[in-house]
Structures are given as structure tokens and as C-alpha cells.
């Protein structure tokens, strides 16, 4: 088990984001009051590679799901680019080009109880993508593919599972069906938005192991969105820590979990339950301050108000990224 692997030169970049920002219009008191914006993501950069996983870690509301939604073209970014195999996806409008893109990039959702249609069998869920994207409508070829897909995700006996409805399966099994669906489509990039947080504890590892297998054996490229940094360490090679839409620290997962430098990452890691510690250990933060809402006109480091080591410069501007170790970047005044 080793996730601390540097990128090799023959690994291809699949999805790449450059300076991604997205603003949402806030609700106004009346139609005459000036428009106000909330900046959900500010300057997000990442690269995803074949056979690798990028974990996006942060608290709720930090913009981690928004990033995945931009990548699947559910939202359009306000500025910046997302490139897929070198092509800017913001230029894709609709029609065949969009369908081709979605054939390659798929999302896995948090709630496996909501993401499968309760009125249809598993056979229906898996044969639709085969029909739409691969023209496989019926016959023994379809049947073999369906059985093969379910066996790949560890749902056996496959023939029995095919005729079941989603409510007859447990959460873990449903999430496996959903992963089989991404395989049926043939997606190479899978954006998994908290795929295990609604599952039973004993089942979670099984689903993570299945995703690891898809990553290593089939060369799938994963984005793993989570607030559980310990599972990120188990599954992902690279990690981005987001706070309030800003990247505060990123690089190889092992570096970030074992040698966190940004005060926010240190706080996140200190809060993870660890049987070897006691509950009394003080958290390195100022008390219970809310995560701020960011707007396009704000400047400085978003974490400055909570940061115990904040300096006056912190509220003035956010410093550029600095590589403090190989594959380990941080944006913080402490390292300037």
C-alpha cells in the first residue's frame, strides 16, 4: 500500500484547471439594491493525471463540490479555464461535443439513495448508458457486458442483482452500482463527491478499495472530494486543501498529512479523531469563529481572522504560492 508516488513523465494529464473563479449572485433586499456577489472559488489550479487521484479536502461550504460541478459543466466558471486533454471545456456549449465530454467525465454523488431511480431495475440503470453511448441495445452482447460490469464492481451473483430494484440493495451495493454505471459509460475521469460519507463504516473501505482498483488497474483518473483527511491519505496521491474557496496548501498527500505547514491544515489534522490522543488537546485556532463569506472585492488571507499566528500583512494580501518542499506548496505569509 503506497500512495506516496511522484508523477512519472508518461502519465498523461486528464483534467486541468487554471485560475478558476466562480461568483454567485447573492439575494438582494429589493430589485433596486446593487448586485452583490459571493465568491465560491477564488483562483483554483489543479492537474489530474491518469491512474492518480486528487483529493480535495475542506470544511463544508469551502467550495469543494463547486469545483467538481464546474468540471462536469453543471456550472460555468466566472473566469479561468478547465482543460480536458488540452481543450478548453468552457467553449463546449451543447450537442454532440457536450455528450462526448460527458462520456469521459462523470460524477459520483454522495447519496446513493437519491442517485438511482427507485422505479427502475439495476438492469435498466446499466443498459441505458450502454445503449446511449455505445449503441448496445439488446442481445447476448449486452447481457455479457452487464454481467461483466457487475462482476467488476464485486456485485455477485450478477444475474440476480440485475433484476433487483435499488431499494433491495444496501448503501454500499448501490454505490457500487453507480460506479458500474461510470464504467458502462466508459468515463476516464471520475469526480467522486463524498462517495463514502453516507455509507456504513464497515462498508466504506470496500468502496474505497474498489475505487483504488479502478484507478490502478483501469487507469481511471479520480477526484476525491472529502472532509475526511484520513481516507484521503488512504486513497489519493495528491491533495488540495481548500479554505473558503482558496487553495491554502497542496501537493503530495503524504507530505501534507505528515508535515502540514499552513495553520489551517494543522487545525484540520488536529481535529481528526485519533484514538491515541485525548479529547482535551487544545485546537490551534481562535474560538469558534465562522468561516467568512468571500466576495470578489475582499483581499488578504481568508483564514487571517481565525489564525493564531496572523500578522498585519495577512489581511492585506494573499501571498503567492511557495514550494517549501518538493511537491508541497503553501500560500501563507509565514513562509515568505
Amino acid at each position: 500500500m503506497q500512495t506516496h508516488v511522484p508523477v512519472t513523465s508518461d502519465q498523461k494529464i486528464t483534467l486541468e484547471a487554471n485560475d478558476l473563479c466562480i461568483d454567485f449572485a447573492k439575494e438582494r433586499k429589493s430589485i433596486f439594491s446593487p448586485k452583490q456577489y459571493l465568491r465560491a472559488l477564488n483562483g483554483l489550479n489543479f492537474k489530474m493525471y491518469e491512474s492518480r487521484c486528487l483529493a480535495v479536502v475542506g470544511e463544508s461550504g469551502c467550495g469543494k463540490s463547486t469545483a467538481a460541478r464546474i468540471a462536469t459543466k453543471i456550472y460555468n466558471p466566472s473566469s479561468g479555464q478547465v482543460k480536458f486533454r488540452g481543450q478548453d471545456i468552457t467553449e463546449i456549449e451543447s450537442g454532440q461535443a457536450l455528450r462526448d465530454y460527458r462520456k469521459d467525465v462523470q460524477m459520483v454523488f454522495q447519496d446513493p439513495f437519491g442517485s438511482l431511480n427507485p422505479l427502475h431495475t439495476i438492469r435498466y440503470h446499466l443498459s441505458r448508458p450502454l445503449k446511449i453511448y455505445h449503441g448496445l441495445a439488446k442481445g447476448s452482447e449486452l447481457e455479457d457486458r452487464l454481467v461483466g460490469l457487475l462482476e467488476q464492481v464485486g456485485l455477485t451473483p450478477a444475474r440476480d442483482v440485475l433484476s433487483k430494484f435499488p431499494h433491495q440493495l444496501s448503501g454500499g451495493q448501490r454505490q457500487r452500482v453507480f460506479l458500474a454505471k461510470t464504467l458502462a459509460i466508459g468515463a476516464n475521469v471520475i469526480l467522486a463527491d463524498e462517495p463514502t460519507s453516507m455509507l456504513d463504516v464497515s462498508i466504506r473501505i470496500g468502496v474505497l478499495n474498489l475505487m483504488s482498483q479502478m484507478k490502478q488497474e483501469m487507469g481511471k483518473s479520480f477526484m476525491y472530494i472529502t472532509h475526511d483527511i484520513a481516507t484521503a491519505r488512504y486513497f489519493a496521491e495528491d491533495t488540495v486543501v481548500l479554505y473558503c474557496g482558496h487553495m491554502v496548501e497542496w501537493g503530495s498527500t503524504e507530505e501534507i498529512t505528515q508535515n502540514p505547514q499552513h495553520p489551517y491544515t494543522q487545525l484540520l489534522l488536529a481535529a481528526v479523531p485519533d484514538p491515541k490522543r485525548s479529547i482535551h488537546q487544545k485546537l490551534p485556532t481562535h474560538r469558534a469563529l465562522e468561516t467568512p463569506m468571500w466576495s470578489p472585492d475582499k483581499t488578504g488571507c481568508p483564514y487571517a481572522a481565525r489564525c493564531p499566528q496572523a500578522k498585519p500583512a495577512c489581511s492585506e494580501y494573499l501571498p503567492e504560492a511557495k514550494e517549501i518542499a518538493p511537491q508541497h506548496y503553501v500560500r501563507c505569509h509565514l513562509f515568505m
Binding site: Q2, S202, R204, G206, A230, R233, V272
Partner: peptide, 11 residues
């Protein structure tokens, strides 16, 4: 979070 990573099976 710390120590050596091992392949886990769950239940």
C-alpha cells in the same frame, strides 16, 4: 492518519 499505510479490508 499516522504511521504506515496498510491495505485494509473492512468487514
Amino acid at each position: 492518519l499516522h504511521g504506515e499505510l496498510q491495505e485494509m479490508i473492512g468487514i
